[in-house]
């Protein structure tokens, strides 16, 4: 009991740190036009490759410097966050909805429902995910909605596998049998008795998946398969930064840091939330 509480306390800084960063990044993305110091698309050849603020030659108002076309890096990162978050939320929720539903059904009902769903998952997972994503976007066409769709189509299996296993474990517990004896219907038991016990895992996976969606979107942008090239995206900025790494390292380094911190925050936040949500661990 006390052990759990101590654990709960040590979880908190993680939760606050990760959650704080995500909130900051999210607010910046939402209010990008108000927050961004410059127009992210404005090119100015007089201002190309300005270094970040602490290095000689920096210009005030261009905190993280500019890229080789003279566009403000910070503003581009903030605007890039918009697409990153839209993709993260939409793709993760779509994957979660499909995957968790199928996982719950397979795990709870077992039998042929489980055999069919598990078979599909096996086949699905045989494809290398990045290749699968590139292929899908090539077929669906580039654009925000096809990126979201591609990520959801690829990654629902992650939810399905985990939730199926968890549901199976829960379904063997006596409280499910008790509910059967009491006369509850199968679907009612699945939704009211079993589902609340797998929600902590769903929440953790959802957050993790958002991080993954951010990476996949960045990879797609990097290979120029994502959104139209005008809108700044983190992957797009990284791709450009790679070309000028010797003249302006910051164009590569800052988006990479942003990406990594965001992805880690999502996974840490998910883990911390899971502990929060779980009545036994709490």
């Amino acid at each position: 009991m006390d052990e759990n509480r101590a654990q709960g306390r040590s979880v908190s800084p993680r939760l606050w740190l990760a959650g704080g960063w995500l909130l900051l990044a999210l607010l910046a993305a939402i209010f990008a036009p108000l927050v961004a110091p410059q127009d992210p698309l404005a090119q100015d050849l007089m201002l190309e490759r300005l270094p970040p603020f602490w290095i000689d030659g920096a210009e005030p108002g261009y905190w993280l410097g500019t890229d080789s076309l003279g566009r403000d890096l910070l503003s581009r990162l903030i605007f890039g966050g918009r697409i990153a978050f839209i993709v993260a939320f939409a793709a993760a929720f779509a994957a979660c909805l499909v995957g968790s539903t199928l996982g719950l059904v397979a795990g709870y009902f077992g039998g042929w429902a489980d055999r069919i769903i598990s078979r599909i998952v096996d086949v699905w997972m045989a494809f290398p995910p990045v290749l699968f994503a590139i292929l899908l976007v090539a077929v669906l066409g580039t654009g925000l909605s096809s990126v979201i769709l591609a990520i959801a189509i690829i990654d629902w299996t992650r939810f399905c596998r985990v939730i199926r296993a968890e549901t199976m474990g829960q379904s063997r517990m006596d409280y499910v049998e008790n509910a059967r004896i009491a006369g509850y219907g199968r679907i009612g038991i699945m939704l009211r008795e079993v589902l609340p016990n797998v929600v902590p895992s769903i929440v953790a996976l959802l957050s993790l998946e958002m991080g993954i969606a951010v990476i996949v979107e960045a990879i797609l942008s990097f290979v120029n398969l994502s959104i139209s090239t005008d809108d700044p995206t983190w992957g797009g900025i990284i791709a450009e930064g790679r070309l000028s790494i010797h003249q302006a390292w910051w164009v590569l380094v800052f988006p990479l840091i942003t990406l990594i911190v965001t992805v880690l925050s999502f996974s840490q936040f998910g883990e911390a939330l899971k502990t929060r949500f779980d009545p036994v661990l709490r």
């Binding site: 517990m173 006596d174 409280y175 008795e193 609340p196 016990n197 036994v280």
Partner: peptide, 17 residues
């Protein structure tokens, strides 16, 4: 008409409710 008093009172109760 029936009810069960189970062997293991922990797993017979739903942990999250």
């Amino acid at each position: 008409r029936t009810a069960l008093i189970p062997q293991d009172p922990l797993t017979a109760l739903n942990p999250s409710r």
